[in-house]
Design a protein around this nucleic acid. Sequence first.
DNA 1: CTCGCAATGTTTACAGTGGAAACATGATGG
DNA 2: CCATCATGTTTCCACTGTAAACATTGCGAG
Lengths: 202, 202
Amino acid sequence: MANKDNSVNIKDAPAKAGRAYHHGDLRAAVIAAGLERLAGGDAGELGLRALARDVGVSATALYRHFPDKEALLDALAEEGLRRLGALQAQAWLKAGGGRAGFKATGIAYVRFAHDEPALFRLSFTRQMPERKGEDEGDGGEVAYNLLRAGVGEVFPAESVDAAALHAWALVHGLAMLVLDRRVDWDEAMVARVVGLTFGGVD
Amino acid sequence: MANKDNSVNIKDAPAKAGRAYHHGDLRAAVIAAGLERLAGGDAGELGLRALARDVGVSATALYRHFPDKEALLDALAEEGLRRLGALQAQAWLKAGGGRAGFKATGIAYVRFAHDEPALFRLSFTRQMPERKGEDEGDGGEVAYNLLRAGVGEVFPAESVDAAALHAWALVHGLAMLVLDRRVDWDEAMVARVVGLTFGGVD
DNA sequence: CTCGCAATGTTTACAGTGGAAACATGATGG
DNA sequence: CCATCATGTTTCCACTGTAAACATTGCGAG
């Protein structure tokens, strides 16, 4: 039951005109507003009221679409993972796969964190749902599959587990350090560091 | 007047007993309470009121010692960094320095994150102060110096920058992935992964 | 010793938050 | 045409961080 399609079509301009009470597709609009608020301004304070005001609706209206604020943030986080996965896939293709493609996905990971710090942080800080026994992709799976595939190209099959974790931890740590201002963003440096593990091909 | 009833003197273990108004050393007590609250329970909700109640003082009293909540959190974060540095130094010594010591500091880093998730997260999430032009160590410097020293032992001097960042990012990413439940805590696995970079000596 | 001042702690109050009810409005299918 | 249901609104409450005014204490100067 309730296997609702929760993928959000964002730039979908809803029927405008004189919608007084019923907003075409709140939920989607709220998520869009949330993403926009996360993207703009580093001081990304997103509260229910502010979000609701952005959409032009009363605060408690959001509760018709999300059980509570956490659920709303979960939805935003999921969208973030989806975008990250998309960027990585794109980078992989553009680099033509192989070692170079693998390295490119790593760099894309860190660049995403740098470009969308609030969204990246939100996406990973959220506690893993742990539910979802189904094969329903949660958005992050794209990234994970790319990771495994890439690792398989660079490392011997027997050490794939450790190598995959190694690669993931490397880019994730780099990303966190960058957006917590522990290190300055410097794409060349990132490329060098990532290259140390992901294969020296440039 | 008025408030003279037997208000419970909570876990007050003061050197000098019987203080009514003036708490010997609030600030320190508040920080201790905060650390304890962070250590216990993963749902580490620390609000001013709760913290003040722990210490047995009114909420606004904290404002005599911290300009605002952020400052309080900063103090806690700094203490976290200090502890992390201490643990790493200890690990380094116990392993006898060298490659093995370097690897030990890396493992200690991740273990700290696993043992004190809330404190670790707080310590690094806090935006870097950037101030503090003085040589006054901020606690994290111990860790950083150990890192540089360790890297110097394992890698050629010319690539120290990239190698140090690499090592740091690796353990930091591992730590974040562990405490965000992206990967399960498994010390053996951590040791293997860290060993891939920090030198294969075991 | 006494007095006054500075440090510290308390009360009270206020704006803002997430969220629960109860009510209002619009769409829709019999 | 109308009952029903999904959606949005009002109102309310507990709670939070924090400012302002007041209370209490310790300490140094006369």
